[in-house]
Simulated scan of single mutants.
Amino acid sequence: MAVQLSNVLKSRALWFLVLVFTLRSSLGDWYIVPSGSMQPSIEEGEYIFVNKLAYTLKFPFTSHALAQLGNPQRGDVVVFNSKVENERLVKRIIGLPGDVIAMSGDHLTINGQPAKYLDLHQVGDAVQAREQLGQMEHMMQVLPRVNPPQQNMRAVTVPADQYLVLGDNRDNSKDSRFIGFVPRSEMLGHAIRVLASFDPDHYFMPRFQRFGTAL
């Protein structure tokens, strides 16, 4: 009897794990952000929740699309598997298919309309601001002392079914300025919230004020 009960429990545990991994593969998942390329929106060491049903329903454990459920929008924070970098990245969508994007001195222009930068303030070595263009509004930062060449970008047109993505930490992000446009097929989902946050510079102490922060 004890052996039978043990086998039943093992079988149920196995099916439970299969269910969990299936849900994580197709519906929603969480990822650890290993860098500060999305500061101040996402800090290094944060666990973010990703809605995998935001854009596409995929067959579990594959990249095969079963149905298109929605379109990525400007301002969305997305997680994608970059074939160029051979790694998973998290960035913000700036350019939609057909958009003309340019940048001069970290100032964006989209389809001829310059973005507005509000509430500028200094945080350590960074200057942070609210970047606003139409309905898109989010926090971003630049590093004036760094002065990298990617602060400028010639006007480019985003191809069909592809997107231009940038990190919110503009002077410390490997994004479309380096890896090119991101195909929709590489996108895993829409990152919508910080689940938990731990500070790697201070013994991974919890940043409780960041728990549950909307993206």
Rank of each mutant, 00 (worst) to 15 (best):
L17E: 05
V18I: 15
L19T: 15
T22H: 05
S26Q: 15
G28L: 14
G28K: 03
D29L: 04
W30M: 07
I32C: 09
Q39V: 09
I42R: 02
E43S: 14
E44V: 06
N51T: 06
K52C: 06
Y55G: 07
K58F: 03
P60F: 00
A65P: 15
L66F: 02
A67H: 14
A67K: 15
Q68W: 14
Q68G: 10
L69A: 12
G70H: 04
N71E: 15
P72L: 02
P72E: 05
Q73M: 11
Q73N: 15
D76S: 11
V77K: 02
V79A: 11
F80K: 03
F80D: 00
S82D: 08
K83A: 13
V84I: 08
V84C: 02
E87D: 13
R88F: 08
L89K: 02
L89T: 00
R92I: 05
G98T: 07
V100C: 04
I101Y: 09
I101N: 03
I101V: 14
M103S: 04
S104H: 12
S104W: 06
D106N: 14
H107W: 05
H107D: 10
T109Y: 00
Q113H: 13
Q113K: 14
Y117L: 05
D119G: 03
D119C: 01
Q122V: 09
G124A: 00
D125L: 06
Q128A: 08
E131H: 05
Q132W: 00
L133S: 09
G134K: 04
Q135E: 13
M136N: 04
E137D: 12
H138L: 05
Q141K: 06
V142R: 04
L143D: 04
R145K: 08
P148K: 01
P148C: 01
P149E: 12
P149Q: 10
N152D: 15
M153V: 00
M153A: 11
A155G: 05
V156L: 15
